[in-house]
Simulated scan of single mutants.
Amino acid sequence: MSGLAWFAWGLAALLLFWGIGAYNRVMSLRNAIASAFAQLDTHLNERAQLCNKLLDLLRPLLPNEQATFAALEAAQAESQTLAQAVRARPCSGDPVASLAVAHAVHAAALTRVMSMLDHHAELREHSELYALMDELKLVERQRSFARQVFNQAVGVYNHAVGQFPTRVLASLYGFGEARSL
């Protein structure tokens, strides 16, 4: 075999091993996004359970505010449905973008309920209510942190997919850009 043939085989082997390494790197970054979403999803489920408890507690106490409670329930149902879609493919852009919008709607509905509670002085005697609100605030802080971890994982993945030689392989293997929340 001539020197040129050895060089060609060596270059082919180098490209093959580089391609395998790049693929494994992008896959591990993609798995990091899925792992970060799993943590976020845990906090979303906790928030949903606490909101249900809050609504169950408030419905008999404030019968005139059923429209506000219905808005929170609707926002929560939409958020849970979209979270289910993101669970299947956390790197897919469209479901994550829809979930981000649903989070904003849910946050607005929850803020309306919380501000409504501040205006009803008769509810101050319910210690269970305020314990539930404190727990909900804690879960919201944890969810916010988990969301930040998810967004960082998405940023690292998108950076890796956007770099030059990996970009060629990313399009070849179908790695698209991920969306943050």
Score class of each variant (00 low, 15 high):
Ala121Asp: 07
Thr111Val: 07
Ala70Leu: 07
Val101Ser: 11
His103Thr: 06
His126Asp: 12
Pro60Glu: 00
Asp118His: 11
Asn158Thr: 08
Asn151Asp: 15
Ala100Glu: 09
Leu136Cys: 03
Glu128Lys: 05
Ala48Phe: 08
Val161Asp: 04
Arg141Lys: 09
His106Cys: 12
Tyr130Trp: 14
Glu125Gly: 09
Ala5Leu: 14
Tyr173Glu: 10
Ala32His: 03
Gln49Glu: 15
Leu72Val: 04
Val154Ile: 11
Ala77Ile: 04
Arg143Thr: 09
Met27Ala: 14
Ile33Thr: 04
His120Ser: 06
Cys91Leu: 04
Val161Arg: 06
Ala146Arg: 00
Ala8Met: 13
Val26Met: 15
Thr81Phe: 05
Trp9Asp: 11
Leu40Thr: 08
Pro63Gly: 05
Glu140Arg: 08
Asn158Pro: 03
Ala131Lys: 06
Gly155Ile: 02
His43Glu: 15
Glu125Pro: 02
Phe69Pro: 01
Trp6His: 08
Asp41Ser: 13
Phe175Trp: 07
Glu65Trp: 00
Leu110Phe: 05
Ala178Thr: 06
Gln152Phe: 06
Gly3Ile: 08
Arg112Val: 03
Leu62Ile: 04
Thr81Ser: 12
Arg87Tyr: 00
Gly3Glu: 11
Thr111Gln: 13
Ala74Met: 06
Ala13Pro: 11
Ala12Gly: 06
Phe175Lys: 02
Ala13Asn: 04
Ser2Pro: 02
Tyr173Cys: 12
Met133Gln: 14
Leu136Val: 01
Ala107Tyr: 09
Val139Met: 01
Arg89Ala: 15
Ala146Ile: 01
Gly176Thr: 12
Trp18Glu: 09
Arg147Gln: 13
Arg167Val: 00
Thr81Arg: 13
Ser35Cys: 02
Arg47Lys: 15
Tyr23Trp: 13
Val113His: 00
Val26Gly: 07
Arg87Ser: 09
Ala107Met: 11
Glu135Pro: 00
Leu11Met: 14
Arg89Tyr: 02
Arg30Ile: 03
Ala146Cys: 09
Gly10Tyr: 04
Gly10Met: 07
Glu122Trp: 02
Glu65Thr: 00
Leu62Lys: 02
Ala108Lys: 13
Phe7Ser: 12
Gly3Ala: 12
Ser79His: 12
Leu58Val: 00
Asn151Tyr: 04
Ala102Thr: 09
Ala38Met: 03
Met27Asp: 15
Ala12Val: 11
Asn151Lys: 05
Pro90Asp: 04
Leu129Thr: 06
Ser98Leu: 10
Ser115Glu: 09
Phe145Ile: 12
Ala170Leu: 04
Ala109Glu: 05
Ala88Leu: 11
Arg47Leu: 13
Thr166Lys: 03
Ala121Lys: 10
Ala5Phe: 09
Ala13Leu: 15
Ala34Asp: 13
Ala74Gln: 13
Ser79Trp: 07
Leu117Gly: 04
Ala160Val: 05
Leu57Val: 01
Arg179Ala: 15
